[in-house]
C-alpha cells in the first residue's frame, strides 16, 4: 500500500517532501521567524514561477527540458536594460520591458527553434551549451552595447554595464507591492501572485486550443502527430518560441522582485532551477501539467528558502543551504533522466 503510493509519487519526491517537512520542523524548533519565512517563500514562489512555466511548452512540444532558457533570459535582460536606459519608471517601465522583450524573444526563440529542429534527439545537451554560448557572447555585448544611463554604466570606465543593476527608483517590487496585504505578520505579494496566476491561466487556455492540443500530441507521440497531419516541426518551433518568450518575461518579473538585473555570468546556470522545480512537481521529460509547475515551484522554493536560515544555524560557516540546493536540484534532474532513458 505504502509502497505503491511511493511509486506513484516517485521516490525522490517523497524524500524531498520528507526533507522539507523536517526542515520546517527544524525551523520551528530553532525559533525562526516563521511569518517572515512564509513571506519569503511566497515571494520566491511568485518570482520564479514564470521561469518554471517556461518548461511547459518545451516539454509539451517534445523538445524535452529546456536547458536553453538563457536564450530567453538574455532577451528579457536586454529589454529590461533598455527600459532603464530610457529612464522609464513604474508600470510604464516594466510594461515597456515586457512588451519589448516579446518580439526580441520571438526572434531568438525562432533561431533557437530552428537549431533544435535540426538536432532532434540531442536537444537537452545542445540547448545547455547554446545557452552557455549565448550568455558568454552577451558578456561581450554588455561591455560594448551603447547604453548611457549612469544607473547602468560603470562610473569610472567609459563603457561597459555594471554587474548588477538596481531597479530601485524604477520598478523594484512593483508587482509584489500591488494590492499586497498582511495576514498577521505574513505579507502576501498579491500582484506578483496574480501575474503568475495570469501566466498560468494563459498557458492553460492555450493548452486547450486547437494548436495547444496538437502540440501536446506531438510531445506525446511524434508518429501519431505525423499520421494526424500535424506539422511536427512547426509545433516544436512554436513550443520553443513560447518557452523563450516566457523565460524573457519570467526574468523581468524575477528581477522586479529581486530588485536587480544581474548581467554577465549570472544567467549561466539559471536554467537548472526551473528544470529541477518542474521535475520536482511531477513532470517528466515528455509529460507535464500546469499543476506540476505550481507544486514544483512551491516545493522547490520553500525548500531552498527555509534551508538557508536553518542551515546557517546548524553550520554558521554558511554554504550548507547552497550545497543542499546543488544536491537536491541536480539529483532530481538525474533521476528524471534515468527514468526517461531506461525505458528504451
Amino acid at each position: 500500500m505504502v509502497k505503491s503510493y511511493i511509486e506513484k509519487i516517485g521516490l525522490p519526491r517523497v524524500i524531498i517532501i520528507v526533507f522539507l517537512l523536517l526542515l520546517i520542523l527544524a525551523a520551528f524548533l530553532q525559533g525562526q521567524n516563521m511569518s517572515m519565512l512564509t513571506t519569503d517563500v511566497l515571494v520566491r514562489f511568485g518570482m520564479n514561477g514564470i521561469l518554471t512555466l517556461a518548461m511547459v511548452p518545451a516539454i509539451l512540444c517534445g523538445t524535452g527540458l529546456n536547458f536553453g532558457i538563457a536564450v530567453g533570459i538574455i532577451a528579457g535582460l536586454v529589454s529590461g536594460i533598455w527600459s532603464i536606459d530610457l529612464g522609464l519608471t513604474g508600470l510604464t517601465g516594466i510594461m515597456f520591458a515586457i512588451c519589448v522583450s516579446v518580439p526580441f524573444s520571438v526572434v531568438f526563440g525562432y533561431l533557437y527553434g530552428k537549431l533544435l529542429n535540426a538536432v532532434k534527439g540531442s536537444e537537452m545537451v545542445v540547448g545547455t551549451y547554446v545557452g552557455y554560448s549565448v550568455v558568454s557572447l552577451m558578456c561581450i555585448g554588455w561591455l560594448v552595447l551603447p547604453f548611457k544611463s549612469p544607473t547602468l554604466v560603470w562610473p569610472i570606465a567609459k563603457a561597459g554595464l555594471r554587474n548588477t543593476i538596481t531597479l530601485d527608483g524604477y520598478y523594484e517590487k512593483i508587482f509584489n507591492n500591488f494590492l499586497s496585504f498582511q495576514i498577521g505578520s505574513v505579507t502576501i505579494p498579491t500582484g506578483l501572485l496574480l501575474v503568475f496566476a495570469l501566466a498560468c491561466f494563459i498557458m492553460f487556455i492555450f493548452s486547450r486550443t486547437k494548436t495547444g492540443i496538437a502540440m501536446k500530441a506531438v510531445g506525446d507521440n511524434n508518429m501519431y502527430a505525423v499520421a494526424a497531419g500535424i506539422n511536427v516541426n512547426k509545433m516544436r518551433m512554436l513550443g520553443t518560441i513560447i518557452s523563450t518568450v516566457l523565460s524573457a518575461v519570467g526574468i523581468i518579473v524575477y528581477a522586479q522582485a529581486f530588485g536587480f538585473y544581474q548581467l554577465y555570468q549570472a544567467p549561466l546556470n539559471m536554467a537548472f532551477m526551473p528544470v529541477a522545480a518542474v521535475l520536482l512537481g511531477g513532470a517528466s521529460t515528455n509529460k507535464v501539467k500546469i499543476s506540476h509547475v505550481v507544486i514544483g515551484t512551491l516545493l522547490f522554493q520553500a525548500l531552498i528558502t527555509i534551508a538557508l536560515p536553518v542551515a546557517n544555524q546548524i553550520a554558521p560557516e554558511g554554504g550548507l543551504a547552497e550545497v543542499s540546493r546543488l544536491i537536491v536540484s541536480n539529483g532530481i534532474i538525474l533521476y528524471a533522466l534515468t527514468q526517461s532513458g531506461g525505458k528504451k
Binding site: K210, I213, A214, K216, A217, D220, N221, M223, Y224, V226, A227, A228, G229, I230, N286, K287
Partner: peptide, 23 residues
Amino acid sequence: GVGLLLGMSIEENMVVPSIYNFK
C-alpha cells in the same frame, strides 16, 4: 507507435485528428 497517444485519455485520443484537421 503510431496509433495512440499513450499518455492521453481515451476521449482525447479519439478526437485529436478531427480537431486539428476539421476544426
